[in-house]
């Protein structure tokens, strides 16, 4: 009985800690808007959050679902083109355009669904080919996508009759969408669906024996993972006012999976940490301008060796190490 109380109280404490940390983090994220208003840093943050949102969906597919999707940029693009079509041709606003983007990306996921029968590296290759093929289609279907030149004059974000222009407003919208997706995914992982995913990760055959429909589950992990990317596509188009096919090539797919793994494949916030690092490297280091991507490559290569759990595992690893050093526990 005492052991149970101890476990419960520890559980209770860690839950309080989580709530406090989350509240502080959310406040700090919203606080960045007035704090950095009018600075370049804020427009940088807007891009980080948009890319992080696309990576967040991929984290669900790869990390929670165990489906190694190497074609996420295709869904980023499908969302962008689907949403922009309704914005430009039917003069929809942002929220209905989100709906259109989700429908288009979901159709893409349905097209990709037969590939889920392939295992491991075969699915990885097929999804990579799917992404590369979609990029070619984006580039060549000029009447729909504007091809390499892109679609211009995408209308700005407009929600409930209010137009959001400028970095501060864009940041608030983008951040809100990202946090909502984050919260929905966190809740989903606590639902029966999330528990089934956990079970499949522990033992696929065990889960199957317990009545989990693994094929359907993998499809849902893909479908749910492409939705944030589709939303990110619309946000990207509306914030920048332009979409070009080159944003959605297979290098973008590889960049997104890199963000997920660098951030920590098992961590939702890791997706944003990975996006922050990637975007920081591509924007900031002016002093080592021509060496920044070389530095990025070296960083990833080193990270995979010393910290395979990604940025998100830094705290845990450091904590474990310090405990060992202090002699308080065992690694």
């Amino acid at each position: 009985m005492r052991a149970r109380d101890a476990i419960l109280s520890r559980h209770h404490r860690s839950r309080t800690v989580t709530i406090v940390v989350t509240a502080v983090a959310v406040a700090a994220l919203y606080g960045a808007a007035p704090r950095y208003d009018g600075t370049f840093f804020l427009s940088f943050l807007v891009d980080v959050v948009i890319l992080g949102l696309a990576a967040l969906g991929l984290q669900h597919t790869v990390g929670d679902g165990g489906v190694l999707n190497l074609g996420q940029a295709a869904f980023f693009g499908l969302g962008a083109y689907g949403g922009v079509w309704t914005l430009q041709h039917w003069h929809w606003t942002t929220l209905p355009a989100f709906g259109a983007a989700i429908v288009v990306a979901a159709l893409g996921a349905v097209v990709m669904a037969p590939l889920l029968r392939l295992r491991g590296v075969y699915f990885a290759m097929a999804s990579f080919a799917f992404g590369a093929m979609m990029f070619e289609i984006f580039g060549q279907a000029v009447s729909l996508t504007g091809g390499e030149n892109g679609l211009f004059l995408v209308p700005p974000l407009r929600v409930f009759g209010h137009t959001f222009i400028g970095n501060r407003d864009s940041y608030l919208v983008v951040l809100t969408v990202a946090l909502l997706c984050y919260a929905v995914l966190a809740l989903l992982m606590r639902s029966g669906y999330g528990l089934s995913l956990h079970a499949v990760r522990q033992s696929e055959n065990g889960a199957r024996a317990a009545g989990v429909n693994v094929a359907r589950l993998r499809f849902f992990a893909l479908l749910i993972g492409v939705i944030p990317a589709a939303l990110a596509g619309v946000l990207y188009a509306q914030v920048h006012g332009i979409v070009q096919a080159s944003v959605f090539d297979y290098n973008q797919s590889v960049a997104l999976i890199t963000m997920v793994i660098v951030g920590g494949v098992a961590s939702r916030w890791g997706a944003f940490a990975g996006a922050l690092l990637a975007q920081y490297i591509s924007v900031y280091p002016r002093a080592i301008e021509q060496y920044r991507f070389l530095l990025y490559g070296v960083l990833i290569a080193a990270l995979m060796i010393v910290l395979p759990g990604g940025i998100a595992s830094v705290g845990r690893v450091a904590l474990a190490r310090s405990r060992v050093l202090l002699g308080g526990g065992r690694l």
Partner: peptide, 21 residues
């Protein structure tokens, strides 16, 4: 497996970036 794949991605970046200089 994904760590290995990503390491190859990283080395691909490194090689291209060295040659690009």
């Amino acid at each position: 497996e994904i760590s290995l794949i990503l390491a190859t991605v990283a080395w691909g970046i490194i090689l291209v970036e060295i040659v690009r200089q």
